[in-house]
Design a protein around this nucleic acid. Structure first.
Length: 513
RNA sequence: GGCGACGUAGCUCAGCGGUAGAGCAGGGGAAUCAUAAUCCCUUGGUCGGGUGUUCAAGUCACCCCGUCGCUACCA
């Protein structure tokens, strides 16, 4: 049986979850659920990244010990996943013993092979920002003082550190990119990674001594591991690394690391280099999605326009939220969130679209077929045309999922929904009721089959709603994967009373925005 | 500054050498099974500007204008 291993980034716990985190998690969940629907042995990992200076600082500001702070924030991320119906198989925290042990083993492996060596990092450092800057970022004043872009004065500092021999991997990385054009997506991001590598790779400082909140460097208690080396290791420590004989190790290498575009480089360059150095296969694909703005403006805490995923779900419901995030914008592009846009999708695509289609079909069955699924009859050309569109859907969607073209997958389903609405209008079963009852039944049966296909393939996007729709279509709980679509629904099964799946959003009198 | 991407209907985008497309929004009509939902028809584009290659260019090349991304040790 083929396997599929996909991951979200582990979320950095220096702040609460926002729509960006929800987006990554939902997208990954949809992909994982689709693989399961295909019958693929799937493993889906999420988690939290809890070390580093920023977390140490955020904890101090909150008046908490780092561990107490990360326990709380990590819990918020876990709650977010649960609320969004995200079906991750595991949730790893970098503060867990299993992770620390695995990350330590990885370090030792890299040190043993000579890819980590003692050295020092030096550069322009701004004490006020607690950050290093490159020469190009700096402004030099008349008196020779150099300033960071933030206006903070910088000084040249030299910190003893362990370095990773990244420079030695440029050629191997380029060769890998060459041999695997699909390694990084979208294509534009791949170009950026390539030009970064071609621009020359310098050895990477992989330890820090300026703060304490991290995994200690083996054999050197004065240093902690660089958070990225620590964090990236989660993808293998969750599978049991360094033990490569455990039950989960079969999932390595990962099929897909889904990431936000801001952390592409760490995943597409540093991580594969670490893995090469450790003698492990590299992930098959790294795909970066875009960012959300809010009503056209950048989201930021200071502007106070951050979209809280908990609020979204409370207000619009889980499935409408999930659907909106994936339907509104081509996956990989940036998108804009607005109440208006979300309500537009909710009403047009869900309530007026598939919701209404199912309701009109099922209520005709309820009223005119004694609530039983009518038999399939001889097919007329229009029937065949609609059913062929439906039957092709699983394959078409599989292709879209292969490329993480989630918006395209939805687009394809809606082609079927529109075709079905067109079909029902042309066939007019409400007229056939008086002229040709048998044909009316056959038409409704064709519609039921088409809706069933749509509902099955939409389960990954809207698990709860599509579950309810499949209930109404009389599809048993164990016959809801792609393989089950091969068999027609049993004739004559009794269907429950139809009930709208997606109510229209009606603006309250008092509601603004 | 360097490298790269993009600029197509009001909006969001697809098309990437052979008579300009989709969804939404707008207009007209039909139907009445349905969540006043649906269906059909339709308005709308000198495909950022220019030069060139070609029998033929949103589609290739070059230049210009505009927008955006990357340009490493915060994540």
């Amino acid at each position: 049986m083929s396997t599929y291993y996909l991951t979200t980034p582990i979320f950095y716990v220096n702040g609460s979850p926002h729509i960006g985190h929800a987006y990554t998690a939902v997208a990954a969940d949809v992909i994982a659920r689709f693989r399961r629907l295909q019958g693929v042995d799937t493993y889906f990992l999420s988690g939290t990244d809890e070390h580093g200076q920023k977390v140490e600082k955020a904890a101090a500001e909150a008046g908490l010990a780092p561990r107490a702070f990360t326990d709380a924030v990590s819990g918020q991320f876990r709650a977010m996943l649960a609320m969004l119906d995200v079906s991750n198989d595991d949730f790893i925290r970098t503060t867990e013993p299993r992770h620390k042990a695995g990350a330590t083993a990885l370090w030792q492996k890299l040190a043993a092979s000579g890819d980590i060596y003692p050295g020092h990092y030096e550069g322009w450092y701004a004490v006020r920002d607690e950050d290093f800057y490159t020469e190009a970022d700096l402004t030099t004043l008349a008196d020779g003082t150099r300033l960071a872009p933030t206006g903070a004065p910088v000084e040249w500092v030299r910190e003893p550190n362990y370095l990773f021999r990244l420079s030695a991997y440029a050629d191997r990385l380029l060769a890998h990119y060459e041999a695997h054009p699909e390694f990084v997506g979208p294509a534009g991001k791949r170009n950026e990674m390539l030009s970064f590598i071609r621009g020359g790779l310098r050895d990477l400082s992989v330890s820090r001594s300026s703060f304490r909140w991290g995994i200690p460097v083996p054999g050197d208690p004065d240093q902690v591991m660089y958070v990225w080396l620590d964090a990236l290791a989660n993808y293998i420590t969750a599978l049991g690394y360094p033990d490569q004989t455990g039950p989960l190790w079969r999932f390595w290498p990962a099929d897909l690391h889904l990431v936000g575009k801001d952390i592409q480089r760490f995943h597409a360059i540093y991580w594969p280099a670490f893995l090469m150095a450790a003698g492990l296969p590299v992930p098959r694909r790294i795909f970066a999605h875009g960012w959300w703005t809010r009503d056209g403006a950048k989201m930021s805490k200071s502007l106070g326009n951050v979209v809280d995923p908990f609020d979204l779900v409370t207000k619009y419901g889980v499935d409408a939220t999930r659907f909106f995030l994936l339907r509104e914008v081509p996956f990989g592009n940036d998108g804009d969130f607005s109440h208006r846009a979300l309500v537009g999708r909710l009403n047009t695509d869900l309530a007026n679209g598939i919701g209404n289609l199912a309701q009109r079909t099922l209520s005709l069955v309820a009223k005119n077929c004694e609530g039983r699924l009518p038999d399939a009859g001889p097919r007329q050309p229009a029937d065949t045309a609609l059913l062929e569109l439906a039957d092709a859907l699983p394959t078409v969607l599989a292709g879209a999922f292969e490329r993480q073209a989630l918006h395209e997958a939805l687009d394809e389903v809606w082609r079927l929904v529109r075709a079905a609405d067109s079909y029902i209008d042309q066939m007019a079963p409400w007229s056939l009721r008086r002229t040709d009852v048998a044909r009316m039944g056959h038409v409704l049966r064709v519609l039921a089959e088409a809706i069933r296909v749509a509902a099955v393939v939409l389960q990954p996007f809207m698990p709860a709603s599509m579950g309810r729709l499949l209930d109404q279509l009389g599809v048993s709980a164990d016959a809801r994967d792609l393989a089950a679509l091969q068999a027609p629904l049993p004739d004559g099964i009794v269907l429950p009373a139809p009930q709208g799946v997606f109510p229209r959003w009606v603006e309250d009198a008092g509601a603004s925005r």
